Simulated assay, not measured.
Amino acid sequence: MKANPLISAQELSNLLDTASNLVVCDCRFELTNPSQGLQLYNDGHIPGARHVDLDQVLSIKGTPDQGRHPLPAREHFAQTMAAIGISDATHVVCYDANDSMFAARLWWMLRWIGHANVSVLDGGFKLWQQGGYPVTTEPPQPAKEGFLSLRDSLTQTVEYDEVLANISAAERLVLDARSPDRFRGENETLDPIGGHIPGAANRFFKDNLQADGRFKEAETLRKEITASLQGQQPERVISQCGSGVTACHNLLAMEVAGFSGAALYPGSWSQWSNTSGAPVAKD
């Protein structure tokens, strides 16, 4: 079963009361304070939600030349998701408090292992609270372990060598989700070198959102993303960011807009900037 990529707070509230096979995942995280996500979860979360940490679950600790947030093995990730109660038929709903950037990573990773029944809470925890929906500090009941089979991936990845070869081949468009200043090589605080991959285009992931944190309407995203793709077909697009997280936000926005088939470069700029000889553009 394939779920809509986005779900509203009202729709999730209804599911909490009626759905028998639902797992809600709290993906809140702070890049500058990795322990804060769990603290926020303990301070209050959607009833029944399970905390899913970027550093512990959605990535592994790697070497600098792998990037800041390398992907775990697909098999290991599937086992981790099964341990919190997710099975093949489970509808997974992901949320965070950071414009859905970490929730989008989990959305993409579940599709990466072939699980299509996953949605992101549109507007995240902020709109859930503002809507007056319930929040609890109570831990969820112990999960009954599920069974999540590895299926054909619903997305694709590319590695450093492929992105490097594409600079001269120019067969695909690299779309960088970082802020415009970091794309230009300014105000870089996370990675050793500022700039971008030569030939890349920039679409800041926050441009996918309305002022209240919800995603823009599908037709608006379609028009804007079409302009960002510069005539390239979606299946010839490589989504990239600092470390393969907000790149998933652009992939989610593309899915909402009806554009499927783009690939993720998981290592992204954090791998590129730590690789000797990698060409760098600044403008």
Rank of each mutant, 00 (worst) to 15 (best):
G242V: 01
N202S: 14
D212N: 06
G132D: 04
L106H: 08
A177H: 11
Q130R: 14
A9P: 06
L106M: 12
N187A: 14
D176V: 05
S100L: 13
C27L: 01
G85Y: 00
S149A: 13
K282G: 10
I7H: 03
G62I: 10
F125L: 10
A281P: 01
F215I: 05
E186H: 08
K216L: 04
K2F: 12
L22I: 04
P64S: 00
R182A: 02
A257W: 01
L252V: 00
P47A: 08
P72Y: 09
C25A: 12
Q156K: 15
A177E: 09
Q271P: 07
Q271D: 09
G195F: 12
V23E: 02
Q129N: 08
S168F: 07
H91A: 05
Q130F: 12
I193E: 15
G213Y: 06
G132R: 02
C25Q: 11
D191R: 02
D181I: 01
S270F: 00
S59P: 05
R222G: 01
D53M: 07
L31W: 12
Q79D: 11
D43F: 12
S260D: 15
V158K: 06
I238H: 02
F183L: 04
H69M: 05
K144D: 15
L150T: 11
Q141N: 14
A257T: 04
G62D: 10
P70N: 07
D99I: 09
D55R: 06
A73P: 01
N250R: 08
L150Q: 03
Y41K: 09
C94W: 05
F205C: 07
E186Q: 10
T80D: 15
G146R: 03
S153G: 08
V174K: 02
T155I: 14
K216N: 00
D96N: 09
S8E: 09
A104G: 07
L110N: 06
N202G: 14
S268P: 04
C27H: 03
T137P: 00
I193H: 11
I197M: 04
N14C: 10
L190K: 13
L252N: 02
R203P: 10
V158L: 05
K206T: 15
Q79Y: 11
E75W: 15
D283S: 15
F77L: 10
Q210L: 10
R68G: 13
A9W: 00
W272D: 06
Q10D: 14
A103L: 03
G85Q: 02
Q36H: 13
L190R: 09
L121N: 00
Y265C: 12
D43A: 10
A281Y: 07
T63F: 14
